[in-house]
Design a protein around this nucleic acid. Structure first.
Lengths: 225, 225
DNA sequence: CCAAAAGTGTTTCCTATACACCCATGT
DNA sequence: ACATGGGTGTATAGGAAACACTTTTGG
């Protein structure tokens, strides 16, 4: 037992894990195996330990509950509504997370009965205030995607221009001109063609890659003012 | 005394309070009256109570420690390094805050010996990890100022174009063309001239105002894609 | 040959930038 | 009159948006 002079809140992390299957934008959810909200779908996450940072806790919980490892996470908001957890005062530090969904077989573990991908457009009922957390995460993503190369965390090392385009369209919620998009990405400088080609139905496409070095060189080239 | 089955962290808020005196961008700091770091300058803030949200706590602590009331605050990051407080595990939810500095006589109270404005360019040594918090706050501000009308919280209801320009220059750290800036602000649509005039040395200037309604109408008019 | 997808080119429009110039006041 | 800051105008360049066309594969 741990005793304090003043009351302390609990602090958890919750991860809004994005994945892309080539068609739709998906979220990784777990079915809760313990009360409260047992049997309900929820964001993966859990209590932060005393010897780890929030980031470390978020990554650990993700691994434990879904088997997902070695991914990019980024804190975006801390939710502190007084009654957001029926048990006790719990504040949660929420993260955006991006996974290369591919054939990543998601494995349920720990407090989770199962872990499963859901299309963002068709989410189940959610535990706690997780619906609001997801809404804010989507807003944040739609905003950041315009200025930071986040979506590359969702794709393989090399990808087709069509895949990249589709992600932008799905996230932004409207269509983009294929040809202008193509040029825009190339003029950015950090989306570079590889020598690989890929074919499906029509003309074989070039595989492109994200060049992190080139991106870092020009982070400070913003145009407003 | 309060006992828990598992160890709990403490959670505090810290406010990076910006003010503008017509020349330089300033931060409101307090001299700590209690250990640890007694006598050192620090960000105003304190422990979040169990019956208030982080936002409410941030505003309350600001009022208690500096007398500042009724201002705009916005959460921007939660700092969770394990050893950031020597006493125990303390996570802090950090806020950007904006004050109309004017003749706001800042009053020290509570755990603060004194509260004082410091130019951002000339800050004293700071307690805890507050230097890092401020650094991140400045980065955030420099970014957000381009896309959100935050700076109006620093100005009176009506202001001259020169005052607005000066804030942008100070925040961004470089000069801007006075004439293009003027036009840009007007084309945005939500900076509107009032009928008041103000005179100092040269030609009397128009006083402008921020039109919140017009801003809200066009939040979604972003240009990238 | 045709369908399907990839890639390049062109034209227009808008806006950011770099300037020059005029205006209204106090002294 | 002139110094001082406020306000408007113009010309240019570069990027965004709209759209047409060519290329490369499979069937």
């Amino acid at each position: 037992m741990y005793t304090y002079e003043h009351p302390h809140p609990s602090v958890t992390t919750d991860c809004v894990v994005f994945g892309f299957d080539g068609e739709s934008l998906n979220l990784l959810l777990i079915e809760r195996g313990i009360e409260p909200y047992k049997g309900t779908w929820a964001l993966p996450g859990g209590f932060v330990r005393m010897n780890e940072t929030a980031e470390e806790g978020a990554l650990r919980e993700l691994q434990e509950e879904t088997g997902v490892e070695d991914i990019y996470v980024e804190q975006f908001h801390t939710f502190t509504a007084v009654d957001r957890d029926p048990r006790e005062r719990v504040m949660t530090i929420a993260f955006l997370a991006f996974v290369r969904q591919e054939k990543y077989s998601v494995i349920a573990g720990d407090d989770a009965v199962q872990a499963k991908w859901f299309p963002v457009k068709d989410l189940p009922e959610l535990a706690f205030d997780h619906q609001e957390i997801i809404r804010m995460a989507l807003d944040k993503l739609r905003w950041k995607i315009m200025y930071e190369p986040l979506v590359f965390h969702l794709l393989n090392k090399s990808f087709t221009m069509t895949q990249l385009l589709t992600i932008y369209e799905v996230v932004l919620g409207h269509e983009l001109d294929r040809r202008n998009f193509h040029k825009k990405m190339l003029t950015l400088g950090y989306v570079v063609p590889t020598k690989e080609r890929v074919r499906s139905v029509g003309r074989p496409g070039t595989l492109y890659a994200f060049d992190e070095e080139k991106y870092k060189e020009q982070i400070w080239n913003r145009n407003v003012f």
